[in-house]
Computed example of a mutant assay.
Amino acid sequence: MTDATFTEIEYAAADGIATITLDRPDRLNAFTPTMARELIAAFDRSDADDDVRVVIVTGRGRGFCAGADLGNGGATFDATDERRVADRAGVGSIGGVTRDGGGTVSLRIAASLKPVIGAVNGPAVGVGATMTLPMDMRFAAASARFGFVFARRGLVPEAASSWFLPRIVGISQAMEWAATGRVFDAAEALAGRLVSRVVPDDELLDTARGVAREIADNTSSISVAASRQMLWAMLGAESPWEAHRLDSRAIHHLGQGADVAEGVTAFLDKRAPAFPNRVSADYPSGIVPAWPSRPEGMD
């Protein structure tokens, strides 16, 4: 079912998979404050819908996202510009300044309780690249291009990418891409571990849907949601003992639950499982803390 309330994205959910399509093809899906708000709302919707097990994000037309819409020229990123102030009303602040719009989206994606697959179907530049970093898997079409171009615009990487990018690809690769600001192809993205698969253009969505289908058809929604939060949270842990503590608590709690009983019984019976638990009602929020935790200094 497609949701018609959005204007710059399309949201469609069917058979356990929500597909979010960036939908400004005439502008190579350039990022705007409206798109940011709609993406956040779309992830709110997918988290609230127990029938959605996986989210796929892709772009309409020949590009994924060409970066920020630069229609305001040299004042595009000027925090004192009247148009920018109006566009960003209600975004909130952190550390005494208005929040970065790309960061509001990337942090919402990071907090998703459903796994997120990025299906990069063409140019993904600037925020078009950084918004994919908190996605759990990134698949690229052979024609995809990536660029962390901020140094060529006089800016710094945004969307919390100074945290995400080096954790995904390593500090040396992250710094090479950030310092040069150059656009590179899908083969280099794969070699640098920015993406995990490169496929022919016409196979991209089928590949993403195939992985999504495997998750939706075979796994416990509670297990996947908790695992996602735990794996990301432990990227910042100082010691594996922190993971051991969290693992032990989660196993102690979930081991008593209906999904585990069904999963084990189904395996022994050699049949497909029918997991009864639902994220909205059964997610172990008191056991697995929300990630990323919201800091002080925000309104």
Rank of each mutant, 00 (worst) to 15 (best):
I215E: 00
M135Y: 11
V120K: 07
S196A: 12
V199N: 02
V125W: 15
V127P: 02
L113H: 12
I117C: 09
R138I: 14
A191D: 15
L190W: 11
P200D: 10
P134G: 10
E158N: 14
I215A: 01
A144D: 01
M131W: 10
A191Y: 01
M131T: 14
T104G: 05
D201S: 10
L113K: 11
I168H: 06
A189I: 01
D206Q: 06
I168G: 05
P157G: 06
D206F: 00
A140C: 08
R153F: 13
G154C: 04
R182T: 12
V120E: 09
D202Y: 09
M175P: 02
D206H: 05
T130G: 05
A212C: 03
A216T: 08
A110Y: 00
R213W: 04
V199M: 06
P134R: 04
F139C: 01
D201R: 07
L204P: 06
E214V: 08
L113D: 12
A110V: 02
F164D: 10
E158Y: 06
M135I: 05
R197G: 05
F146E: 07
V149A: 13
Q173H: 14
R193W: 08
V169Q: 04
S112Y: 12
T130D: 05
A186I: 05
A144F: 04
A160E: 15
A179C: 05
E188T: 13
P134M: 09
V149W: 08
F164V: 04
D100E: 11
A187R: 11
R167F: 15
G181W: 08
Q173N: 14
A191W: 00
G147S: 12
R108C: 02
I171N: 07
N218V: 00
G103M: 13
A140K: 09
A160I: 06
F139G: 00
G210M: 01
E176M: 07
M135A: 09
N218C: 04
A179I: 01
A140D: 06
S106V: 02
R209E: 14
V169L: 02
D206S: 12
I109D: 12
S161F: 01
A187P: 03
V149K: 02
E158T: 10
I109V: 15
R138K: 11
W163M: 08
D217V: 02
S112W: 07
T180Q: 02
G103F: 08
A208E: 03
R197D: 14
V183D: 12
E188D: 12
G122N: 03
D100I: 03
